[in-house]
Design a binder for these strands. Structure first.
Lengths: 133, 133
DNA sequence: ATCAACCGTGGAGTTTAGTCCATGCTTTAC
DNA sequence: GTAAAGCATGGACTAAACTCCACGGTTGAT
């Protein structure tokens, strides 16, 4: 199929597909061209892209996704390997969540402090925060 | 003071200070130069940088921080304004946290599914996930 | 014949917040 | 007198994952 159809079937834009190609995430052999030089994409490429999307949707980066696919293709994507990769991601996510929640608390505190510091309920006063002592 | 001292007192690198200058976050008048062309930074600039850092530490971007400072300087940084900006940030954070937690659940699910799908406890089998049906 | 819609390539731009480099002048210390 | 350290300027580079653009060839419909 041509790139337009590939785009439709994967939900990716042509530009994205071409970008993935530039990145080496998918390959089209130099022989897989039509006479007019249009690229002919195989079902295998379609599958690879769908898989890439699926893995990516779990929060893996493009490169990580490609690595996982390589493992699978080399029959090395064992349960241990995959689980370990996912575990690592979970740890990263947990860290991010913690940071965000800390930030959230700080923000909530400045909101209450700001309102509290306003000369009583006149919320049109300047916020006493964000002023260096 | 010169940039080196300013860097020391703010904890920012010279490069960062120069970058902020390029971005227009701080300004040094063309007249505020020593005879040798070295820039002379005022205490006001120092304060502005410290304030910028403080606001930034609450998760605001550089530009947002600069905007908040502008409000404060124009005596418009009212409790309402500041609280509203913080509220907005909180909402953004909440959204991100939710996304991350959803992702976390998906990952946990693929871990258990992967292990469950392994031909029983042989974790060296290929993970049955990440395979298109 | 011509217009839209599609294809190819190469390269630039986007975002954020800087970092690093080259070049060249100034000042300070030994 | 010379080396190190500090200053100024302008511009390139970084990550991530695209998106957009220009230019040009091809195909299909009218």
């Amino acid at each position: 199929m041509l790139i337009g159809q590939l785009a439709q079937r994967t939900g990716l834009s042509r530009d994205t597909i071409r970008f993935y190609e530039k990145q080496g995430l998918i390959k089209v052999g130099r022989r897989e061209r039509r006479v007019n030089n249009y690229k002919e994409y195989s079902e295998a490429v379609l599958k690879r892209l769908l898989l890439l999307n699926k893995i990516k949707s779990y929060g893996f980066t493009l490169n990580e996704s490609a690595e996982i696919i390589s493992l699978l293709e080399a029959d090395l994507g064992t349960c241990n390997q995959i689980s370990k990769a996912a575990d690592k991601k979970v740890a990263v996510i947990d860290k991010k969540v913690k940071e965000l929640l800390d930030l959230r608390n700080s923000l909530l505190k400045i909101i209450t402090d700001c309102k509290k510091g306003c000369s009583s309920p006149n919320l049109e006063d300047n916020c006493p925060l964000f002023v260096l002592e």
